[in-house]
Design a binder for these strands. Structure first.
Length: 267
DNA sequence: TATCCTGTTACTTT
DNA sequence: AAAAGTAACAGGAT
């Protein structure tokens, strides 16, 4: 479910609710979810919540709690008296007791992870640039595209560019008129510029709509993002292309379901 | 009932 | 370097 815009939405809502709250307790219900050996964040105050790629970073004084939602993770805050409600206990993997709230991590498929760490170097080492920062330029994208890999697979590689997932890569490539199986090195500069524009604009618009909710993604427990109605190709198999009316087809690229207009997006 | 599908990532093999 | 396969999981759709 969650790509950059969804993670950003979760971070924005969390920020307001957990600022200055202190970690009082931690209840790990599914052992594999909490990866780190250390966990001495108890008694520490939450000083900031931010995002790097698809990772949520909860800063507590000089330490960090890092959360990756993977496919079905949900991270949200509830009032203390609501902990035992069935909808909160369902798929609950970790609960953190805060000063006057609970921070819950639910995860149906158990792929999500929570890390405790003393620095973020390991994240910086594995993640490419943040696409929404002004310092992510067309030249950066040109550099990334100096590769013979299929462009969709390349854009999904978090070490090349951070935050894009299956939905937004398909949207960007449709916007730019690039077929997902094009070898990146063969994409003309003109289209790389369009991809760059698409990455910035589509992610930004998705954030404004609080993300794309298909099956499981929600924020603040159960609120849904509204970007589904703005999608141009993703999940539109057998529907008409908004540019040329051709029927959108679904294929597989890099083992991922991929939506494409074979007329607008040529290799 | 059985099989296939899913918005992620890490690891191994080819 | 790139591609392909597998694995981690649960549950909805076909």
């Amino acid at each position: 479910m969650p790509e950059l815009p969804e993670v950003e939405t979760v971070v924005n809502s969390l920020k307001l609710m957990v600022a200055n709250q202190v970690f009082l307790g931690c209840d790990i219900r599914w052992h594999k979810t909490f990866v780190s050996a250390e966990n001495n964040f108890l008694k520490k105050k939450i000083t900031n919540v931010s995002r790097r790629g698809k990772y949520i970073i909860i800063e507590c004084e000089d330490n960090y709690l890092v959360v990756h939602l993977r496919m079905t993770g949900k991270l949200f805050v509830i009032n203390k008296q609501d902990l035992l409600l069935p909808e909160h206990q369902k798929h609950l993997r970790v609960s953190f007791e805060l000063s006057d709230k609970y921070l819950l991590f639910q995860d149906q498929r158990k792929f999500g992870r929570v890390y405790f760490c003393k620095d973020l170097n390991w994240l910086e080492e594995k993640l490419g640039p943040e696409p929404l920062l002004d310092n992510f330029t067309v030249e950066d994208l040109v550099g990334i595209c100096k590769s013979a890999r299929q462009v969709k697979v390349l854009l999904l590689d978090q070490s090349k560019i951070a935050g894009l997932g299956n939905i937004y890569v398909d949207e960007v490539l449709w916007y730019a008129g690039v077929h997902p199986q094009t070898k990146a090195i063969e994409i003309p500069l003109k289209k790389i510029k369009l991809m760059h524009r698409g990455i910035k604009d589509i992610l930004q618009k998705a954030i404004e709509n609080k993300g794309t909710s298909f099956q499981s993604y929600t924020f603040e427990g159960s609120k849904k993002g509204g970007f589904v109605s703005e999608l141009k190709v993703f999940n539109r198999a057998k529907a008409q292309c908004f540019k040329c009316s051709t029927i959108i087809t679904k294929t597989r690229v890099g083992q991922r379901g991929t939506y494409v207009c074979t007329v607008c997006q040529v290799i």
